[in-house]
């Protein structure tokens, strides 16, 4: 454990709290992508299957349980008490309604879940169920924020807490990259190209957002995407 990873994890933890605080405070989930939240829930459920068979540390175990339960709570709230404020029209992917005619989650399944799973079958750290699901979770996490970013793109502006949430998740990913560099130089045999490549892709997806978020903060102006 180093300071970069710890800070990254803390930002990740805070991101859930920000989102939940915001939803409860405003009694609304407007501007939050249910698709991204469901994808994150799939990510955590697949990756943390090792809760059942391998123990790393109490810290890891508690964080894993928190990530799964917080995301499950957010999804549950969006489907129940805050359902009426869910902005479904702006949470549609380009392919929704057209993927092979009529398969249910359309865009998300066709453009995000299936490609990630196929990639996991090709590039993994071992051809067995857990390894494939683990690789799948890494690839899926890399792109899980896309529906949220598309939603922001459609509405052009976001509510302060939603923006803070995206910022926290993006910053957590950025800190993980620094953590990897640190580990590479301080640990022997630390080599994980699969995670590094996905992590860099994931962080790049936030670049645009960070740029406009920074402009808004610098100018004390409202966050507004161009176009």
């Amino acid at each position: 454990m180093n300071i970069f990873r710890l800070s990254g994890d803390m930002l990740h933890l805070i991101s859930f709290l920000v989102l939940m605080y915001r939803m409860r405070g405003q009694r609304s989930c407007r501007g939050v992508s249910l698709k991204s939240q469901i994808l994150f829930l799939i990510v955590f459920c697949c990756r943390y299957l090792d809760l059942f068979f391998s123990f790393v540390s109490l810290y890891n175990t508690m964080m894993k349980i928190f990530f799964i339960s917080a995301t499950a709570t957010i999804v549950y709230w969006m489907l129940t008490k805050y359902r009426s404020s869910y902005d479904m029209d702006n949470d549609k992917l380009h392919g929704d309604g057209s993927f092979m005619g009529h398969l249910p989650p359309h865009g998300v399944l066709g453009y995000i879940i299936v490609p990630c799973f196929l990639l996991a079958l090709i590039w993994n750290e071992g051809f067995e169920a857990f390894e494939i699901l683990w690789a799948f979770s890494i690839y899926l996490e890399a792109v899980a924020i896309l529906p949220q970013l598309f939603m922001l793109q459609k509405t052009k502006e976001g509510e302060a807490f939603t923006l803070l949430y995206i910022f926290c998740v993006g910053a957590y990913r950025g800190l993980y990259i620094i953590n990897w560099i640190y580990r590479y130089f301080t640990e022997k045999h630390y080599w994980q190209p699969l995670v590094w490549v996905s992590g860099v892709v994931q962080t790049l997806l936030y670049a645009d957002f960070f740029y406009y978020y920074w402009i808004a903060l610098r100018d004390g102006a409202k966050f507004q995407l161009p176009g």
Binding site: D9, V56, M63, E125, Y176, K188, Y190, V195
Partner: peptide, 10 residues
């Protein structure tokens, strides 16, 4: 090993 792989991260 597990401790030295990406699997000891979150």
């Amino acid at each position: 090993s597990y401790q030295n792989s990406g699997k000891d991260e979150l």
